[in-house]
């Protein structure tokens, strides 16, 4: 029975699923990486995603262009990021608690707006599958990598972009310094709070796009709490990836691969108890975390607010 799993078409199908499933995780965890590298832990990603998902959906539902919907999500994400920054950077509240507050805020507000502005579950026409000419014709790889909607491509494009920003720009250098030793950065005239506001806005925008990738990309529907805790997994993936963009990519892909695998195992009626199949991603996560427990890159000032001492 397991033979079925190893036919070319099944493997291509699994990898195709994996690449697509990783999309929201990538956006959200890359955004969270910016925040954590600058020393701010944002547990409110899921709430921002819900707000992004809702606004993108609502704008498209009202008949606007998909890209306008995406921009709406980004704008809302930036606002949510600013709110988080205000509470944890300016007001210096405990970052974990304020993150949970932000999550509940996003969860509640998106539900409330959904109830008042839309009222029932509706569908929209979201980003369509966009096969890239020529590349998508490559056997196997073409389908796996080049036969997705625009947001999927954008998610993967964000990996090198994020890496470049963090490692090759002056902003990135400031982010890394502020996350590790804010006092040192401050004495060199780097505005610690300014950098942290910036990363919160970047993170908020990316989290909102992650939400939009669900509501106008992968599912084309909005439902209350539709992220189902995906944002929290994205936060875990940042730890999993040791705060590196490549690690985050690996984590997102691995997590999605195991999810894709379990769906395929069940769909092909391969005799594995469905309970085991459903557990696979979590077992895998624990195993990998156990082996990647090194936290060399962990920003030393993570989750600590900064106040200039006299």
């Amino acid at each position: 029975m397991f033979d079925e799993l190893f036919t070319i078409s099944t493997l291509v199908g699994i990898l195709h699923s994996c690449v697509r499933l990783a999309t929201p995780y990538l956006f959200a965890s890359l955004g969270e990486t910016f925040g954590q590298r600058s020393g701010v832990l944002n547990l409110g990603v899921d709430g921002i995603m819900l707000m992004g998902a809702f606004f993108a959906f609502y704008v498209v539902f009202e008949g606007h262009n998909l890209w306008v919907g995406l921009l709406a999500a980004i704008a809302v994400g930036i606002l949510m990021g600013l709110l988080k920054a205000f509470v944890s950077v300016t007001m210096q509240s405990l970052q974990g608690i304020s993150g949970i507050g932000l999550y509940l805020f996003g969860l509640g507000l998106s539900s409330l707006l959904f109830k008042t502005l839309i009222g029932s579950v509706e569908g929209v026409s979201g980003f369509r599958q966009l096969a890239i000419p020529f590349l998508s014709d490559i056997p196997g790889i073409g389908h796996i990598l080049f036969n997705h909607n625009a947001l999927v491509y954008l998610a993967y494009l964000m990996v090198p972009v994020s890496w470049f920003v963090i490692n090759r720009t002056t902003l990135g250098l400031k982010i890394r310094a502020v996350g590790h030793n804010p006092e040192a950065a401050d004495t060199l005239g780097v505005s610690v709070n300014g950098v942290r506001y910036t990363t919160m806005m970047i993170g908020g925008a990316l989290a909102a796009v992650a939400g939009a990738s669900l509501s106008i990309g992968l599912q084309n529907v909005f439902q209350e709490n539709m992220t189902n805790g995906l944002g929290f997994i994205a936060v875990a993936l940042v730890y999993f990836g040791s705060w590196r963009t490549v690690g985050v990519l690996g984590g997102s892909l691995l997590f999605s691969l195991v999810n894709a695998l379990q769906l395929w195992v069940q769909a092909l009626a391969i005799p594995v108890p469905s309970e085991i199949a459903v557990m696979m991603p979590y077992i895998m996560t624990i195993v990998v975390l156990a082996f990647t427990a090194r936290q060399i890159q962990k920003p030393a000032a993570l989750a600590r607010s900064y106040e200039r001492g006299e």
Binding site: T170, R176, A177, H180
Partner: peptide
């Protein structure tokens, strides 16, 4: 300062470049 103001995960060059245009 007596207590050094350095970011130890960064290289020497990065520490020098930090905050400069």
């Amino acid at each position: 300062h007596q207590h050094f103001m350095l970011v130890d995960t960064l290289t020497v060059t990065e520490n020098v470049a930090l905050g400069l245009k």
